[in-house]
């Protein structure tokens, strides 16, 4: 139990943000038409690519004398970039097709 309290007190601000973000996420998505499920999933997919920020931090703080860390950091940044760039570009390509529709 003590562990939980110390965890809470040291991450208090983060936990507040976490709880609020859960509700924001639910609010933002509510009542989405099924036509947009795929682009929305794809867009959300690109946004969680924000994990790349963590990969960059790890690589920037990596010890130059530990080659394994550098290799892992390098790969992590590649993976994160793929997620971000691929995610946003593919979403844009999907949505581009919606826009081209001729209106009657």
């Amino acid at each position: 139990m003590e562990h939980i309290f110390t965890f809470f007190s040291s991450h208090q601000q983060m936990i507040f943000m976490l709880i609020l973000m859960v509700f924001v996420g639910i609010e933002v998505i509510g009542h989405v038409p099924s036509v947009l499920h795929t682009p929305l999933m794809s867009g959300a997919n690109a946004i969680h690519g924000v994990v790349i920020v963590g990969a960059i931090l790890v690589l920037l703080n990596a010890d130059v004398n530990k080659p394994l860390t550098l290799v892992f950091g390098f790969i992590a940044v590649i993976l994160g970039t793929l997620n971000v760039v691929g995610g946003f570009v593919v979403t844009d390509r999907m949505l581009e097709m919606f826009k081209k529709k001729p209106k009657k």
Binding site: M21, G25, H37, V53, G54
Partner: peptide, 25 residues
Amino acid sequence: AGGFLYHNEVMLTGGILVGSAGTLL
């Protein structure tokens, strides 16, 4: 989880946002 570890706000908000919106989706 990475956001928690680094006390990095943008990772936390982005991650949780997708976590909750994705679950609803």
